[in-house]
Computed example of a mutant assay.
Amino acid sequence: MHTHYKTYYPYSSPFDPCEPIHEKTFSTPPHLYIDYQPPNLPQFSPMEALKAGTLWKPLYDPYFNSYEKAKGGLAR
Rank of each mutant, 00 (worst) to 15 (best):
Phe44Gln: 12
Tyr33Glu: 12
Tyr8Leu: 08
Ser12Met: 00
Glu23Cys: 13
Ser12Tyr: 05
Phe15Asn: 07
Leu32Met: 09
Lys69Gly: 13
Ser45Asn: 07
Leu32Asp: 06
Lys57Met: 08
Ser27Glu: 08
Phe15Ala: 05
Ala70His: 14
Met47Lys: 05
Ile21Asp: 08
Ala49Phe: 03
Thr3Asn: 08
Phe44Trp: 11
Tyr8Ser: 13
Ala70Cys: 10
Pro17Lys: 09
Thr28Phe: 00
Tyr33Thr: 10
Pro30Cys: 03
Thr25Asn: 04
Ala52Gly: 06
Lys57Arg: 14
Tyr36Trp: 07
Phe64Asp: 09
Pro39Gln: 05
Ala70Phe: 10
Pro39His: 05
Tyr8Met: 13
Gly72Tyr: 15
Phe15Thr: 10
Ala70Arg: 13
Glu23Pro: 01
Glu19Leu: 04
Lys69Phe: 06
Tyr8His: 10
Leu74Lys: 02
Gly53Gln: 01
Met47His: 07
Lys24Glu: 09
Asp61Pro: 00
Met47Thr: 07
Phe44Arg: 01
Glu23His: 09
Met1Val: 14
Trp56Ile: 00
Tyr67Asn: 13
Pro46Val: 03
Asp16Thr: 07
Phe64Leu: 01
Leu32Gln: 15
Pro10Asn: 10
Leu50Cys: 02
Asn65Cys: 08
Tyr9Thr: 11
Gln43Asn: 01
Tyr36Pro: 03
Asp35Thr: 03
Lys24Pro: 00
Cys18Asp: 10
Pro39Tyr: 06
Pro42Thr: 04
Leu50Phe: 12
Asp35Ser: 06
